[in-house]
């Protein structure tokens, strides 16, 4: 008989940072950070209210913490917003296949994120921000609904000092030099697509349609589908391949994903 791995463990909230009107950044102490990969997720719970899958937005193995960007949109996240620093946030995980750092090392990497899709790639960006020598080149293309919804603003400003970052908003605020419109229209201007495709990798994370259209734009610009990586978002209930909610064809997003190679998932539609 195997151990019961579905029981959550209590994790102390170390810090809460208000990020946007409906999003907070939570830092929690987590004993098993050594098992964590970029792009994975955990099942956070508020006993009596339920569980929800939240992707890891950053972590520190040395300091034993995880960070989650949590949007107040449901029964459980509403309750998480009632918690304070020092409270316990029970959770289990980490789950899923994340981004493999080695896969991008020595490559020209472009990361495209839409809205809160920035959260699951933030730790990946921070890793290469801290280790720029590991990439041939690095570009970021970030799309948000409007300026109020831009998350991790100060970090973006830091990143911009080191590599090109395009931030575009759907709804213009009228500020000078503001880039507007969908991320898709900026794909053809990226330097990454001018490189030798053998040494290019592209990561796209965001809402399903945004990922679909952005991937198609890269393919149109000559990037082979197998060089594109996406992170699927699906309803999760068990997160361990039993409950069936996240299944598409023979694939379980919680087990084989959430990060997939685009070529391997192009046929997965539902």
């Amino acid at each position: 008989m195997t151990a019961n791995n579905l029981l959550p463990i209590n994790c102390e909230i170390l810090a809460i940072t208000k990020t946007t009107a409906i999003e907070n950044l939570y830092r929690v102490r987590f004993p098993h950070v050594d098992k964590v990969h970029n792009g994975q997720f955990l099942q956070l719970s508020v006993p009596g209210f339920g569980e929800c899958a939240i992707s890891i937005t950053d972590f520190s193995v040395e300091e034993q913490w995880l960070e989650f960007l949590i949007r107040k949109v449901g029964l459980v996240t509403n309750q998480i917003f009632n918690l304070n620093v020092g409270d316990y946030l029970p959770m289990r995980g980490p789950y899923g296949k994340g981004f493999q750092i080695a896969n991008y090392e020595g490559k020209h990497l472009a990361i495209v994120a839409g809205g809160s899709g920035l959260a699951p790639v933030r730790s990946l960006i921070k890793h290469f921000h801290a280790n720029p020598q590991d990439l041939k080149s690095f570009e970021l293309l970030l799309g948000f609904k409007d300026t109020d919804n831009v998350i991790f603003k100060s970090e973006i400003a830091e990143w911009e000092k080191q590599f090109p970052v395009i931030v575009t908003v759907d709804n213009p605020s009228g500020a000078p030099d503001e880039k507007t419109g969908l991320v898709t229209q900026y794909v053809s201007g990226l330097k990454t697509i001018k490189q030798d495709m053998n040494s290019v990798e592209v990561v796209i994370v965001g809402p399903p349609r945004m990922m679909e259209f952005t991937a198609k734009e890269f393919i149109k610009n000559g990037v082979p589908p197998e060089k594109i990586w996406v992170s699927f978002e699906r309803r999760m209930s068990c997160a361990v391949g039993k409950c069936g909610h996240c299944r598409i064809d023979e694939v379980y997003v919680c087990l084989e994903g959430p990060v997939f190679n685009y070529a391997a998932t192009a046929h997965l539609f539902d």
Binding site: M1, T2, A3, N4, N5, L6, V240, G241, K242, G244, Y252, L255
Partner: peptide, 18 residues
């Protein structure tokens, strides 16, 4: 599904199934 779909069998299924 419950015993073979991932490395870890489902605890709640297995305890009865056994």
């Amino acid at each position: 599904i419950f015993l073979r779909n991932s490395e870890t069998p489902d605890y709640y299924y297995q305890r009865r199934r056994n």
